[in-house]
Protein backbone atom coordinates (compact mmCIF):
# COMPACT_ATOMS: atom_id res chain seq x y z
CA UNK A 1 0.00 0.00 0.00
CA UNK A 2 1.34 3.34 -0.89
CA UNK A 3 1.66 5.94 1.74
CA UNK A 4 -0.38 8.99 0.81
CA UNK A 5 -0.82 10.64 4.17
CA UNK A 6 0.63 10.84 7.61
CA UNK A 7 2.01 7.56 8.70
CA UNK A 8 0.75 5.84 11.79
CA UNK A 9 4.01 4.56 13.21
CA UNK A 10 2.39 2.34 15.78
CA UNK A 11 1.26 0.14 12.97
CA UNK A 12 4.59 -0.12 11.31
CA UNK A 13 5.82 -3.22 13.04
CA UNK A 14 2.48 -4.72 13.97
CA UNK A 15 1.96 -8.47 13.44
CA UNK A 16 -0.51 -9.57 10.82
CA UNK A 17 -3.97 -8.81 12.03
CA UNK A 18 -6.83 -11.23 11.97
CA UNK A 19 -9.73 -10.52 9.69
CA UNK A 20 -11.90 -9.54 12.59
CA UNK A 21 -9.29 -7.13 13.82
CA UNK A 22 -8.92 -5.63 10.40
CA UNK A 23 -12.65 -5.17 10.15
CA UNK A 24 -12.76 -3.63 13.58
CA UNK A 25 -9.96 -1.24 12.87
CA UNK A 26 -10.76 -0.22 9.34
CA UNK A 27 -13.14 2.45 10.44
CA UNK A 28 -11.20 5.19 8.77
CA UNK A 29 -8.38 5.80 6.44
CA UNK A 30 -5.53 4.29 8.40
CA UNK A 31 -2.57 3.77 6.20
CA UNK A 32 -0.18 0.85 6.48
CA UNK A 33 3.39 1.38 5.64
CA UNK A 34 6.03 -1.25 5.94
CA UNK A 35 8.41 0.73 8.14
CA UNK A 36 10.17 2.62 5.39
CA UNK A 37 9.59 5.89 7.23
CA UNK A 38 11.35 4.59 10.34
CA UNK A 39 14.13 3.17 8.22
CA UNK A 40 14.54 6.52 6.57
CA UNK A 41 14.57 8.21 9.94
CA UNK A 42 17.20 5.84 11.25
CA UNK A 43 19.30 6.40 8.17
CA UNK A 44 19.07 10.14 8.63
CA UNK A 45 19.84 9.81 12.32
CA UNK A 46 22.95 7.71 11.87
CA UNK A 47 24.29 10.09 9.25
CA UNK A 48 24.25 12.79 11.92
CA UNK A 49 27.67 12.33 13.52
CA UNK A 50 26.84 14.39 16.57
CA UNK A 51 23.76 12.31 17.22
CA UNK A 52 25.79 9.12 16.97
CA UNK A 53 28.37 10.56 19.35
CA UNK A 54 25.49 11.39 21.67
CA UNK A 55 24.28 7.81 21.63
CA UNK A 56 27.79 6.51 22.25
CA UNK A 57 28.18 8.89 25.19
CA UNK A 58 24.88 7.88 26.71
CA UNK A 59 25.78 4.22 26.38
CA UNK A 60 29.13 5.00 27.95
CA UNK A 61 27.55 6.78 30.92
CA UNK A 62 25.01 4.00 31.42
CA UNK A 63 27.81 1.44 31.51
CA UNK A 64 30.07 3.71 33.57
CA UNK A 65 27.39 4.37 36.16
CA UNK A 66 25.72 1.00 36.46
CA UNK A 67 28.40 -1.51 35.44
CA UNK A 68 31.39 0.55 36.58
CA UNK A 69 30.86 -0.03 40.32
CA UNK A 70 31.09 -3.79 39.72
CA UNK A 71 34.49 -3.36 38.11
CA UNK A 72 35.84 -0.51 40.27
CA UNK A 73 35.17 -1.14 43.92
CA UNK A 74 35.10 1.77 46.36
CA UNK A 75 33.59 2.19 49.81
CA UNK A 76 30.69 4.57 49.37
CA UNK A 77 29.15 3.79 52.76
CA UNK A 78 31.90 4.95 55.09
CA UNK A 79 34.15 7.82 54.11
CA UNK A 80 37.59 8.35 55.52
CA UNK A 81 36.96 11.78 56.98
CA UNK A 82 40.52 12.10 58.24
CA UNK A 83 41.71 11.88 54.63
CA UNK A 84 39.13 14.30 53.24
CA UNK A 85 40.24 16.10 50.07
CA UNK A 86 43.17 13.75 49.52
CA UNK A 87 44.56 14.18 46.01
CA UNK A 88 44.65 11.53 43.29
CA UNK A 89 47.00 8.65 44.00
CA UNK A 90 47.29 4.94 44.40
CA UNK A 91 43.92 3.40 45.12
CA UNK A 92 42.09 6.62 44.39
CA UNK A 93 42.73 7.71 40.79
CA UNK A 94 40.52 10.78 41.23
CA UNK A 95 41.31 11.37 44.89
CA UNK A 96 38.85 11.76 47.75
CA UNK A 97 36.06 14.28 48.20
CA UNK A 98 35.49 16.52 51.20
CA UNK A 99 33.72 13.69 53.06
CA UNK A 100 36.56 11.26 52.43
CA UNK A 101 34.74 9.24 49.76
CA UNK A 102 36.50 7.99 46.64
CA UNK A 103 35.74 10.57 43.96
CA UNK A 104 35.59 8.17 41.00
CA UNK A 105 33.16 5.87 42.78
CA UNK A 106 31.20 8.93 43.80
CA UNK A 107 30.86 10.08 40.20
CA UNK A 108 29.58 6.64 39.25
CA UNK A 109 26.92 6.82 41.98
CA UNK A 110 26.03 10.33 40.90
CA UNK A 111 25.68 9.11 37.33
CA UNK A 112 23.21 6.47 38.46
CA UNK A 113 20.93 8.98 40.10
CA UNK A 114 21.28 11.46 37.24
CA UNK A 115 20.20 8.85 34.70
CA UNK A 116 17.48 7.33 36.86
CA UNK A 117 15.94 10.66 37.70
CA UNK A 118 16.53 12.04 34.22
CA UNK A 119 14.76 9.18 32.44
CA UNK A 120 11.96 8.80 34.98
CA UNK A 121 11.20 12.51 35.29
CA UNK A 122 11.28 12.94 31.51
CA UNK A 123 8.95 9.98 31.07
CA UNK A 124 6.56 11.33 33.66
CA UNK A 125 6.59 14.83 32.17
CA UNK A 126 6.10 13.46 28.67
CA UNK A 127 3.19 11.23 29.64
CA UNK A 128 1.40 14.04 31.43
CA UNK A 129 2.23 16.59 28.76
CA UNK A 130 1.19 14.33 25.91
CA UNK A 131 -2.15 13.51 27.50
CA UNK A 132 -2.93 17.08 28.41
CA UNK A 133 -1.82 18.37 25.01
CA UNK A 134 -3.82 15.78 23.13
CA UNK A 135 -6.96 16.38 25.17
CA UNK A 136 -6.64 20.14 24.79
CA UNK A 137 -5.99 19.96 21.06
CA UNK A 138 -8.73 17.48 20.34
CA UNK A 139 -11.41 18.90 22.63
CA UNK A 140 -10.81 22.54 21.77
CA UNK A 141 -13.07 25.23 23.16
CA UNK A 142 -13.32 25.69 26.89
CA UNK A 143 -11.29 22.60 27.76
CA UNK A 144 -8.47 23.72 25.51
CA UNK A 145 -8.57 27.25 26.87
CA UNK A 146 -8.59 26.05 30.46
CA UNK A 147 -5.76 23.57 30.02
CA UNK A 148 -3.65 26.02 28.08
CA UNK A 149 -4.10 28.71 30.73
CA UNK A 150 -2.85 26.19 33.26
CA UNK A 151 0.12 25.59 31.00
CA UNK A 152 0.66 29.36 30.70
CA UNK A 153 0.68 29.72 34.45
CA UNK A 154 3.03 26.77 34.79
CA UNK A 155 5.41 28.21 32.23
CA UNK A 156 5.26 31.64 33.83
CA UNK A 157 6.48 30.41 37.21
CA UNK A 158 10.22 29.71 37.20
CA UNK A 159 10.54 25.96 37.49
CA UNK A 160 13.66 26.29 39.58
CA UNK A 161 11.76 28.32 42.14
CA UNK A 162 9.06 25.68 42.46
CA UNK A 163 11.59 22.89 42.66
CA UNK A 164 13.58 24.72 45.32
CA UNK A 165 10.50 25.34 47.44
CA UNK A 166 9.47 21.71 47.21
CA UNK A 167 13.01 20.51 47.79
CA UNK A 168 13.22 22.54 51.00
CA UNK A 169 9.83 21.35 52.17
CA UNK A 170 10.28 17.68 51.36
CA UNK A 171 13.24 15.40 51.87
CA UNK A 172 15.40 14.67 48.89
CA UNK A 173 14.83 11.10 47.75
CA UNK A 174 15.00 9.80 44.19
CA UNK A 175 11.22 9.29 44.07
CA UNK A 176 10.62 12.79 45.40
CA UNK A 177 12.84 14.34 42.77
CA UNK A 178 11.26 12.32 39.95
CA UNK A 179 7.87 13.58 41.03
CA UNK A 180 9.01 17.16 41.67
CA UNK A 181 10.84 17.52 38.35
CA UNK A 182 8.34 15.49 36.33
CA UNK A 183 5.28 17.31 37.59
CA UNK A 184 6.91 20.65 36.90
CA UNK A 185 8.16 19.83 33.41
CA UNK A 186 5.09 18.72 31.46
CA UNK A 187 4.06 22.17 30.27
CA UNK A 188 6.31 22.31 27.23
CA UNK A 189 5.42 18.84 25.88
CA UNK A 190 1.76 19.66 26.48
CA UNK A 191 2.00 22.72 24.31
CA UNK A 192 3.98 20.92 21.62
CA UNK A 193 1.57 18.00 21.45
CA UNK A 194 -1.41 20.32 21.42
CA UNK A 195 0.07 22.09 18.42
CA UNK A 196 0.57 18.80 16.63
CA UNK A 197 -2.93 17.64 17.45
CA UNK A 198 -4.46 20.89 16.25
CA UNK A 199 -2.75 20.26 12.93
CA UNK A 200 -3.51 16.54 12.77
CA UNK A 201 -7.16 16.74 13.65
CA UNK A 202 -7.94 18.52 10.39
CA UNK A 203 -6.20 15.91 8.28
CA UNK A 204 -8.20 13.65 5.99
CA UNK A 205 -7.47 10.42 7.80
CA UNK A 206 -8.75 11.86 11.05
CA UNK A 207 -11.81 13.30 9.38
CA UNK A 208 -12.43 9.97 7.72
CA UNK A 209 -12.10 8.16 10.99
CA UNK A 210 -14.44 10.58 12.67
CA UNK A 211 -16.99 10.23 9.86
CA UNK A 212 -16.95 6.49 10.37
CA UNK A 213 -17.98 6.97 13.98
CA UNK A 214 -14.69 6.83 15.85
CA UNK A 215 -14.94 8.20 19.37
CA UNK A 216 -12.76 11.06 20.59
CA UNK A 217 -10.93 8.63 22.83
CA UNK A 218 -10.22 6.35 19.91
CA UNK A 219 -9.12 9.25 17.72
CA UNK A 220 -6.70 10.35 20.40
CA UNK A 221 -5.17 6.97 21.10
CA UNK A 222 -5.19 5.48 17.62
CA UNK A 223 -4.42 8.45 15.45
CA UNK A 224 -3.40 11.65 17.11
CA UNK A 225 -0.95 10.61 19.81
CA UNK A 226 0.78 8.03 17.61
CA UNK A 227 1.27 10.64 14.93
CA UNK A 228 2.61 13.15 17.44
CA UNK A 229 5.08 10.66 18.87
CA UNK A 230 7.95 12.03 16.83
CA UNK A 231 7.61 15.36 18.54
CA UNK A 232 7.29 13.66 21.92
CA UNK A 233 10.33 11.49 21.41
CA UNK A 234 12.46 14.44 20.43
CA UNK A 235 11.21 16.35 23.44
CA UNK A 236 11.93 13.47 25.80
CA UNK A 237 15.62 13.69 25.07
CA UNK A 238 15.65 17.37 25.92
CA UNK A 239 13.55 16.67 29.00
CA UNK A 240 16.16 14.17 30.20
CA UNK A 241 18.90 16.74 29.73
CA UNK A 242 16.82 19.35 31.55
CA UNK A 243 16.04 16.98 34.41
CA UNK A 244 19.72 16.18 34.86
CA UNK A 245 20.50 19.89 34.89
CA UNK A 246 17.68 20.65 37.32
CA UNK A 247 18.85 17.97 39.70
CA UNK A 248 22.37 19.29 39.47
CA UNK A 249 21.25 22.87 40.01
CA UNK A 250 19.22 21.99 43.07
CA UNK A 251 22.07 19.86 44.36
CA UNK A 252 24.51 22.67 43.70
CA UNK A 253 22.35 24.97 45.78
CA UNK A 254 22.45 22.49 48.64
CA UNK A 255 18.97 21.01 48.35
CA UNK A 256 19.75 17.90 46.38
CA UNK A 257 19.51 14.25 47.25
CA UNK A 258 20.10 13.18 50.80
CA UNK A 259 23.05 10.95 51.54
CA UNK A 260 23.71 8.11 50.88
CA UNK A 261 22.44 9.16 47.46
CA UNK A 262 24.79 11.29 45.46
CA UNK A 263 24.10 13.89 42.83
CA UNK A 264 26.59 15.61 40.61
CA UNK A 265 25.33 19.07 41.53
CA UNK A 266 26.13 18.50 45.18
CA UNK A 267 29.56 17.23 44.17
CA UNK A 268 30.07 20.30 42.01
CA UNK A 269 29.09 22.56 44.89
CA UNK A 270 31.68 20.93 47.13
CA UNK A 271 34.19 21.21 44.35
CA UNK A 272 33.58 24.91 43.82
CA UNK A 273 33.99 25.52 47.55
CA UNK A 274 37.40 23.96 47.33
CA UNK A 275 38.41 25.18 43.89
CA UNK A 276 40.71 27.92 45.13
CA UNK A 277 42.22 25.42 47.53
CA UNK A 278 43.55 23.57 44.50
CA UNK A 279 41.35 20.47 44.81
CA UNK A 280 40.75 20.25 41.05
CA UNK A 281 39.73 16.60 41.23
CA UNK A 282 36.57 17.58 43.08
CA UNK A 283 35.23 19.74 40.26
CA UNK A 284 36.62 19.07 36.80
CA UNK A 285 35.86 15.33 36.44
CA UNK A 286 32.29 15.59 37.71
CA UNK A 287 31.77 18.86 35.84
CA UNK A 288 32.99 17.19 32.67
CA UNK A 289 30.64 14.25 33.16
CA UNK A 290 27.68 16.56 33.64
CA UNK A 291 28.48 18.58 30.53
CA UNK A 292 29.03 15.50 28.39
CA UNK A 293 25.84 13.76 29.51
CA UNK A 294 23.67 16.80 28.93
CA UNK A 295 25.37 17.46 25.63
CA UNK A 296 24.84 13.85 24.60
CA UNK A 297 21.10 14.05 25.13
CA UNK A 298 20.94 17.35 23.29
CA UNK A 299 22.84 15.83 20.35
CA UNK A 300 20.45 12.91 20.31
CA UNK A 301 17.48 15.24 20.48
CA UNK A 302 18.76 17.27 17.57
CA UNK A 303 19.42 14.13 15.59
CA UNK A 304 15.99 12.72 16.31
CA UNK A 305 14.33 15.96 15.38
CA UNK A 306 16.12 15.98 12.06
CA UNK A 307 15.30 12.36 11.49
CA UNK A 308 11.64 12.35 12.50
CA UNK A 309 10.56 15.64 10.99
CA UNK A 310 10.19 15.09 7.26
CA UNK A 311 10.66 18.77 6.61
CA UNK A 312 14.12 18.65 8.12
CA UNK A 313 15.27 15.52 6.36
CA UNK A 314 17.87 16.00 3.71
CA UNK A 315 15.92 13.87 1.34
Amino acid sequence: MTSIGPVDPTQAAAPLATEAELLAEHDAGQVYEQGSSWRLAWQTFRENYFAVIGVILVIFFVLFSFVGPYLYHSNQLTGSIADANLGPGKGHPLGLDQNGFDELGRIMKGGQTALEIGFAAAALASVIGTLVGAIAGLAGGLVDALLMRIVDVGLAIPTLFIILVLAVRYNGTITAFVLIIGINSWFVPARLVRGEVLSLRTRDFVQASRSMGATQWRLMWRHLIPNALGTVIVNVTFQIADAVLFLSTVGYLGFGLNPPYVDWGDQLSDGVTNLLNGYWWEIYPVGGCLILLVLAFNFIGDGLRDALDVRLRRR
Binding site: L77, G79, I81, A84, N99, N258, P259
Partner: peptide
Protein backbone atom coordinates in the same frame (compact mmCIF):
# COMPACT_ATOMS: atom_id res chain seq x y z
CA UNK B 1 27.19 18.00 56.57
CA UNK B 2 30.68 16.57 56.79
CA UNK B 3 30.27 15.78 60.48
CA UNK B 4 26.86 14.24 59.90
CA UNK B 5 27.98 12.09 56.99
CA UNK B 6 30.98 10.90 59.00
CA UNK B 7 28.59 9.93 61.81
CA UNK B 8 26.36 8.16 59.31
CA UNK B 9 29.28 6.08 58.05
CA UNK B 10 30.34 5.11 61.56
CA UNK B 11 26.78 4.30 62.60
CA UNK B 12 26.34 2.02 59.63
CA UNK B 13 29.10 -0.14 61.06
CA UNK B 14 26.96 -0.93 64.08
CA UNK B 15 23.72 -1.32 62.13
CA UNK B 16 22.34 2.10 62.95
CA UNK B 17 20.99 3.65 59.75
CA UNK B 18 21.13 7.41 59.76
CA UNK B 19 19.37 9.44 57.08
CA UNK B 20 21.07 12.81 56.75
CA UNK B 21 18.82 15.55 55.39
CA UNK B 22 20.11 19.00 54.46
CA UNK B 23 18.02 22.07 55.31
CA UNK B 24 18.78 25.73 55.63
Amino acid sequence: GQETIALQGAAKQIGVNITPVAKT
